[in-house]
Design a protein around this nucleic acid. Structure first.
Lengths: 345, 345
DNA sequence: CAAATCCTTTAGATTATTCCAAAAACGCCG
DNA sequence: CGGCGTTTTTGGAATAATCTAAAGGATTTG
């Protein structure tokens, strides 16, 4: 039924290995033969059987993305999709296929990873975000399997990973507000167990300190990556005696919550409160007013992760000398929500 | 290095074929041997080499999703991610792996599909949405490869596909407004070349006719699945002499645009204009007011697509007798944006 | 004519499945 | 209890499609 390398060889009057050489661009093959074989391959519609190839070469030319447990939130979905797009694009350019896997729980996840790697179905793995899933990372490390972490982990410092400099990003966001003339700046953080939250909070602190601005405990509120947190933070801030004139929020969704609350109370943005947040989701430019946001380059994050992983697969020895941490640049997108210089009261 | 079936066989003092039979749950194997072999497999940490298995069995236990060309819009991203989640979940339950592929253009896409199927890397394909990409569908059909279309295509009626009944969905949405007492109902459609747009428009028409309500040409506006379209449609509607009291929008994003516009003009929702739209994206319940929306069960769409595809792969003959079109039920989620019964003027 | 060079072929390896046959166990009858 | 037919369980060998290393053949050169 299907055309195999043998069929091509027979028709071309050469041996299968010659065809194989043509296929892999082996230097020691005459141009004439090469051309002839290529024509015949085309004619017969030959496509190499990847399974046989993989079996012999012990490589699959595919990598696998491990999706964390079903995250139903808006941001996660946008984030993952964008990341996947980056990964798939880069991988396909490098001639790699991408497999998506996910498990209902950590045990299932580990089983899947183990099956895929030990069963030689994929050559490497991209892990999303640093859950403290030691089991999976431990398995990957001890087995010497190539993998990249998107995000960063406290526990493992020497792991190959791709991430943003969230401290710097928050520093920039805060500085932007400071440079607009704000002095009382609030911060709405995310869950304290997430490294992103901690890093961004630290960046905010640094910027405030750096400019010698007062930092009050009540100007820092903890929440989630959700509208609700923003809504609540807003009403808390606005009731303070000496309320902030601007705030930095860990996620655009939080900003939307803030915006909604301010709107209900007839406050104006950015005049009554200027806002900057993170992640620059597609909606940030569509809200009214559009929200200033730090674009963290999600697509780029995925693209780089794939690149780094495939490099490692192809040259496992190469420690790349310098670092195992790849930092994707962020950039501040200034929109209306922060375009206002407060006058001194 | 790696443990193969031979190693297990040797250690267990049986032949490789026996181990293979234990693995596949062959009935003709003594319980005693089976147990012994299983213990040894466990001990040695044996995982079957999928490549070798695939080579022999001519099946890969994996399917492939073809992502359309990079769609950057919010809805597409949410849609795809949700779909992927459904597909991955179901596939993994059926013991299948999922590959994601995409090409920069149609030619690349076709090449990828061809390589994956002819190269025996996947057993079947899930196509997203009905671009008129005849090339890919033609290839799949003529090659007799299993595939499922998510969405529907005019040209191919007998193709295996999973979709919503968009006519009925729009009928339901419109009827909901009618049952609330609305008589002048507008419709904001999507691009006219999309089948979704046409179907939903038809459903709207049917509902209006069915209730004997007047239908005016100026109450139907064409747009895109974007906020802007809603914004423009809104200002058009509100300036009509005999303006609608309610409207149906093809997509939630459109509703957001409408909402923004109404808000700027100090109109109230649902009192001045009631709104229902489609797709029920996570944001619809978060806007103010929350938007009534038709949930089209995206996850379910993906879940079913995977199910149907895998069934076809495993029993290619089975025409399932009835139909090749699988319809995923929708449901109307009523929220504030339509919770108002207009009094007669 | 031997040696060198170049290209191609042959043979063997990769790992797991499956068919066919062999061995073992079982039962029944004389 | 031996012999014979059956059934159950297991082993051996062939096969799947490709790659690699070593060997082979042809052509050219000295």
């Amino acid at each position: 039924m299907t055309v195999t390398i043998k069929d091509v060889a027979k028709k071309a009057g050469v041996s299968p290995s010659t065809v194989s050489r043509v296929l892999s661009g082996h230097p020691r093959i005459s141009l004439e033969t090469s051309r002839k074989v290529k024509v015949i391959m085309e004619e017969m519609g030959y496509t190499p059987n990847m399974m046989a190839k993989s079996l012999v070469s012990k490589t699959t030319n595919s990598i696998c993305i491990i999706l964390p447990k079903p995250a139903e939130e808006l941001f996660s979905n946008l984030f993952f999709m964008e990341l996947i797009r980056g990964i798939v694009t880069q991988s396909s350019r490098s001639g790699y296929d991408v497999l998506i896997s996910s498990g209902a729980n950590e045990k299932e996840e580990l089983e899947a990873v183990s099956r895929l790697l030990k069963g030689r179905r994929v050559d490497g793995v991209i892990l999303l975000y640093s859950r403290k899933d030691d089991a999976v990372i431990d398995f990957l490390e001890s087995g010497g399997y190539p993998f990249v972490l998107v995000g960063r982990s406290d526990r493992y410092e020497d792991i190959l990973s791709v991430d943003n400099d969230n401290v710097m990003a928050a520093f920039d966001a805060t500085n932007h507000l400071i440079s607009m003339g704000h002095e009382r700046i609030g911060f709405v953080s995310g869950p304290p167990n997430l490294i992103v939250s901690r890093d961004r909070l630290e960046g905010y602190r640094k910027a405030m300190q750096n400019s010698g601005l007062e930092m009050r405990a009540e100007w820092i509120v903890e929440g989630e990556f959700l509208q609700d947190s923003g809504y609540r933070a807003m009403s808390f801030f606005m009731n303070l005696p000496n309320r902030p004139t601007a705030l930095v929020a860990v996620d655009d969704m939080v900003s939307f919550g803030v915006l909604r609350g301010l709107n209900e109370l007839k406050y104006k943005v950015p005049e009554d409160l200027a806002i900057v947040s993170f992640n620059n989701i597609p909606l940030s430019e569509l809200s009214s007013p559009p929200i200033s946001s730090i674009d963290i380059g999600i697509y780029h994050l995925g693209y780089t992760a794939s690149q780094v992983l495939i490099q490692t697969i192809q040259k496992p020895d190469n420690d790349s000398g310098y670092t195992n941490r790849f930092v994707i640049p962020h950039r501040l997108i200034v929109r209306e929500s922060s375009m206002y210089a407060p006058g001194k009261k």
